[in-house]
Write a protein that binds this DNA or RNA. Structure first.
Lengths: 327, 327
DNA sequence: ACAGTTTGTGAAAACGTTTTCAGTAATGGC
DNA sequence: GCCATTACTGAAAACGTTTTCACAAACTGT
């Protein structure tokens, strides 16, 4: 039924080995190569990638495992990853874990069964920790979140510096009672929180920290409670774009005007952050760069598996907007 | 090196056929099944999916081809598609075409080589037209955009109705000079435009239409020009979320207040549309439903390939917000 | 002109599964 | 107790490629 390499070989009057070589990079005379190409056109042949993978033991596929593609940070990273992958003739399998360690484990197993060339992975804290003992059958590059030191290549933001920068900025603008609302499941949030704490201490201020599941709904609920209390903070640092959005909603619900009643500073320079009045101060992450660097690390790891573990740390860029304008 | 089914068979003291059956759904006695499962655990066996696909001629993979995953509409749809796919034991390969027919053709060919089970595809007008003559080796479900009638299953919004609903709403709110800014590459935009035109005519008004590449930058530039003209419209209908965002930016740049100086009504109820003051009136698309329905159509098509072509048309829901408050 | 290399080619093995085929043992109806 | 099913099982073929191996022909350098 379906046309295979032997049909092409017959049509071209050569062996299947020659067809394979003509299509790949084996040595073939120009004359035969042309015959083969003509036969391919005539027969409408399409190589069967499963067979090719099985025989060549190379899947030319990478796995991309993230919490939720709807988080704009991951959306942008995934686009960069896929561009780089397809440019190198690789396919991408995308998986959403919803920060669930069980699903993470399931997808990692799936990646083993696919015999993928490599995986780019934003793990939860839990899985990142267990990753060091379980050797996978493929190279892994961690993004956004990082595991215990030195077990896998990774590309992350300089989160402590970014967290501290937001505090410094708020202090410079005259705010003193600065709270922090951080995600509960990722090392990223922990690091941003550490930067926040360090900067707060350096300025001789008192920290006020709450943690929350990293989604807009949970953040809105928690921020709503907080802002309803009598000693609510003058300013809030939010550890990612979804939590920032939740905080904006909560502020609206309480009728608090930015920045007069409450200052907000968060992460992720999403397109809407400069549209909501008076503009939200954020740390912009170099999302495309993160994806591209992750692919680069992955390719280089595949190239030379034994090289020392590397960690690429990129800097965020603070974009000051109206939400932190001084008092 | 790597452990295969024959290693498991040897460890369990059975044939490879029995292992295959124990892991799949063949008839195996309970005793042997347990032996096999123990052997699998002992050896750390992971099935090789390439081999399985090759032999069983079933890839259990679907392709998802969209313009750009960063368009929130496609982000949300893709999430729904992947949830449904993984729930049925299928993998998803995601491809971004950037509305480029050449890339669309390339990815369609890739899908043939992958021998995918099916494809969910949001094509450009160009490719949608050519799709009817080129028979692909797999079922295709069109989403968002639709080709010439009746060649492929599809799930689309009732775009004419949605476009008309926005006009009706604007008219009811007292606006008369209502312009429309539509994307230039998709049938979706054409249909929304048709709805706009029909409603405009029905109200005895004069249409004013411009088209633009469907991205925020191009939309901002074009809207900026338009709003700078002396006879600028009182209200604008925007054919998708990105164009809506561009229009908001252009209005800001011209210092126009919503809705006093300009009313805006667009598509896609993205999370930010109720955060930018005074809230943007939009048609909400049932994104999760679109993804889920597409998968359903695809599965049913696989089930019975000969059944008549089906088109699922879903209704949008208008959410009226401040940007169209009456004058 | 010769040995040694390089280049191009085909036959056949191999990749790791599932599936077919044939066969044996157990079960059921009478 | 016998025949006809049914339930399991293993040997071997098959899936569609790439890669190894062997070999012939065409080049090198001398």
């Amino acid at each position: 039924m379906t046309v295979g390499i032997r049909d092409v070989a017959r049509a071209a009057g050569v062996s299947t080995a020659t067809v394979s070589r003509a299509l790949g990079r084996g040595p073939v005379s120009d004359a035969l190569r042309e015959q083969v190409e003509a036969a391919v056109r005539a027969t409408g042949y399409r190589p069967n990638l499963s067979a090719r993978r099985l025989r060549s033991q190379s899947a030319q596929t990478i796995g991309l495992i993230v919490a939720d593609i709807r988080n704009p940070f991951f959306t942008a990273v995934s686009r960069a990853v896929e561009d780089a992958a397809f440019a190198s003739g690789m396919r991408v399998i995308l998986c959403n874990t919803d920060e669930d360690p069980a699903r993470e484990a399931m997808y990692l197993r799936l990646m083993e069964e696919e015999r993928v060339t490599g995986v780019i992975f934003a793990p939860t804290q839990t899985t990142a920790d267990s990753l060091r003992e379980t050797p996978l059958g493929f190279p892994v590059v961690l993004i956004d979140r990082t595991g215990p030191a030195g077990t896998h290549d990774s590309v992350v933001l300089d989160n402590p510096a970014a967290g501290a920068a937001l505090v410094d900025h708020l202090v410079a603008q005259g705010y003193r009672r600065i709270g922090g609302l951080f995600g509960s499941t990722s090392s990223t949030a922990r690091e941003r929180r550490a930067g926040y704490e360090a900067a707060i201490a350096r300025h001789g201020l008192t920290p006020a920290i709450r943690t929350v599941a990293p989604n807009a709904e949970a953040a809105e609920a928690e921020a709503g409670r907080w802002l309803g209390e009598t000693d609510r903070p003058e300013a809030l640092v939010l550890s990612n774009g979804l939590i920032l959005m939740g905080a904006v909603r909560a502020a609206r619900a309480h009728g608090l005007a930015l920045p007069r009643d409450l200052a907000l500073a968060g992460f992720d320079n999403e397109p809407w952050t400069d549209l909501v009045e008076p503009g939200l101060t954020v740390i912009e992450q170099p999302v495309a760069e993160i994806g591209a660097q992750a692919m680069r690390l992955l390719f280089e790891r595949i190239e030379s598996p034994e090289q020392p573990v590397r960690k690429v740390m990129l800097s965020g860029r603070m974009i000051a907007r109206g939400s932190t304008r001084g008092r």
